[in-house]
């Protein structure tokens, strides 16, 4: 195993733990406090790239599947993965990969990052809403009303924060890795 590979594995584990910590971090955005999980999912993609972003979310899902309380509201276990919100969790993996891949291709330019996080956020909904509809038997309209519309504004703020944080932290990570992230 190459030292750079090992270092990236450690960083991916760190991002997985940050995604888990994001489930505990509540920031009031408007009347309802929201958790910061998606922020760290997008950040994992932007900082580590598509492949390692996907790895970090995959590890996060595995740790959650083992029963550790790393999912939203301190939940854990297979139930959460196969339950109504499972689609959003699998959507995190797709979001990290797509956001990371686009950011890499666009050489981490700000405009490309904005598009990448927007598409990444949409990927979460693209996986989460059909899953929610299938599990609960709701109509499309109800699934969208319950599972997407209330979260659009907070998700836009989190996506913007991910772009700002990635811009600030990339030089630090580059110094540590010695390569462009």
């Amino acid at each position: 195993m190459q030292p750079d590979d090992l270092r990236m594995s450690v960083y991916a584990s760190l991002m997985a733990s940050l995604i888990a910590v994001g489930a505990y971090l509540m920031v009031p955005l408007g009347p309802v406090p929201v958790v910061l999980q998606n922020l760290f999912v997008l950040l994992a993609g932007l900082l580590l790239g598509g492949r390692w972003g996907l790895v970090s979310v995959g590890i996060y899902l595995l740790v959650g599947a083992m029963g550790l309380p790393v999912f939203a509201e301190g939940k854990g276990g297979i139930a959460h993965l196969v339950g109504p919100r499972g689609g959003y969790l699998f959507g995190f993996a797709a979001a990290a990969y797509v956001a990371g891949m686009l950011s890499e291709r666009g050489r981490s330019r700000m405009r490309v990052d904005v598009v990448a996080v927007a598409i990444g956020t949409l990927m979460v909904y693209a996986c989460g809403i059909p899953w929610l509809k299938m599990q609960t038997g709701m109509s499309w309209q109800k699934a969208l009303t319950v599972g997407m519309i209330p979260f659009l504004v907070p998700d836009a703020v989190k996506a913007a924060a991910a772009v700002v944080l990635a811009k600030t932290l990339r030089p630090l990570l580059r110094r540590k890795l010695g390569v462009a992230s």
């Binding site: 030292p3 450690v10 760190l14 920031v27 009031p28 924060a161 700002v164």
Partner: peptide
């Protein structure tokens, strides 16, 4: 809210990255 998130996340991430780096060096 953007400033709130930034003021919380950047110091946490800086520290965490430092710790992760030390651990990676120790593993190697």
């Amino acid at each position: 809210p953007l400033k709130r998130i930034k003021h919380l996340a950047i110091p946490v991430l800086r520290r965490a990255l430092g710790r992760a780096d030390e651990l990676a060096v120790a593993l190697v």
